[in-house]
Design a protein around this nucleic acid. Sequence first.
DNA 1: CGGTATCCGTACTGATACTG
DNA 2: CAGTATCAGTACGGATACCG
Lengths: 120, 120
Amino acid sequence: MDELLFDVFARNCPSRETMEHATGRWGTLALVALRDGTTRFNALRRRVDGISEKMLSQTLQALERDGLVLREARPTIPPHVEYSLTPLGAAVAGQLFGLIELLEGRMPEVIAARETYDAR
Amino acid sequence: MDELLFDVFARNCPSRETMEHATGRWGTLALVALRDGTTRFNALRRRVDGISEKMLSQTLQALERDGLVLREARPTIPPHVEYSLTPLGAAVAGQLFGLIELLEGRMPEVIAARETYDAR
DNA sequence: CGGTATCCGTACTGATACTG
DNA sequence: CAGTATCAGTACGGATACCG
């Protein structure tokens, strides 16, 4: 663990900040949704169930700022804006998707654990 | 993506809930800290910089309930409580650590992206 | 269509104090 | 040591309305 350049456990670690953007409630879902390919704002909004316009906007801005997401706006009327993953974003999204797969595959264990825990 | 049992993108998906526990602000740090081995409450608290007793307690309870963390209390005075990863928790923590490594290794890209973004 | 601005409730957060 | 209880602040999040 000590061979890492930054210490995620430390308060003001820049990687901890980016981690929070990527693993936050909406960040993960946005990144994983973009693995399916370039997507427009409202399509993304429909894909990620429950996200508001505001949160999607904020999430995408944070991810764009960190260089995980690429935003391309065409100056047409009506506006046409496309979001996609940068190479770095694709790597992060892949890792996150691995986590989702892992968890989904083992949800029976999780559910069983919850029942055991709650039976007290 | 459709081959998954649950749909993380859906609002009331049980895996989305567990994802949020594991990837939440403190969940990730607690899980990764426990990769170093069985740890006591206050040791964990010192390791994860900035976490309050309350948040650590809540975080550990959520992870224990999901079957990611094992809590073992010895009825001594003073109390001696040890936290460790379950096999499932270890798998999740490993995946999260992979993400941290990835991000730490590429922080220069992130920092550069931020500077580009802010220069507008 | 793709946002931003505003309002407003609540849920999270951290200090502090206290207990077994 | 390992928590719980209580409380005040804030930042998160959603709904709505509006703009280019």
